[in-house]
């Protein structure tokens, strides 16, 4: 079950800031704890930057979700960029092709409850994360 989604284009640095602000607002609305809000906004910042830097821009969709027991937030990051050739390597701490620290993808995965990647070389990458209220 899910409510209406909110979408943002990610084309500039400023859009990454907007993603953080939207995720923060929705995190407060679903009453995530302060630490969980911080973790989710941080993960969203890492992944939105990846969408911009590696994916060449794309779209972020933020949705309030619920199952029988809990409320949560699902965020989807989608780009039509080059895709990820070696996913295991990309998820390794410290590995980077972009001159960063190599913590964005692997670190973001540790900060959320559910993490799924759909990627194909030449077709783009879609990453879905979910954080549930405790």
């Amino acid at each position: 079950m899910s409510d209406e989604s909110q979408r943002l284009r990610v084309v500039t640095d400023q859009d990454v800031v907007r993603v953080r602000q939207l995720v923060r607002t929705v995190s407060v609305a679903v009453k995530l704890s302060l630490v969980d809000q911080t973790k989710l906004v941080t993960a969203a910042s890492e992944l939105a930057r990846n969408t911009l830097v590696y994916g060449g821009g794309g779209e972020v969709e933020v949705t309030r979700v619920h199952n029988e027991r809990r409320a949560g937030i699902r965020i989807v990051f989608a780009d039509q960029g080059p895709g990820i050739v070696d996913l295991d390597l990309a998820l390794t701490d410290g590995y980077t092709t972009g001159g960063g620290l190599g913590l964005g993808l692997s670190g973001a995965r540790r900060l959320v409850d559910e993490f799924a990647i759909d990627t194909e070389p030449g077709k783009g990458t879609t990453i879905t994360i979910v954080k549930w209220c405790r």
Binding site: Q37, T38, T42, D93, L101, G107, L111
Partner: peptide, 14 residues
């Protein structure tokens, strides 16, 4: 640094 930021940074790996 806020406590929640410290917790998140360490978990992020930084």
């Amino acid at each position: 640094m806020r406590p929640a930021v410290a917790i998140t940074l360490v978990e992020l790996g930084l």
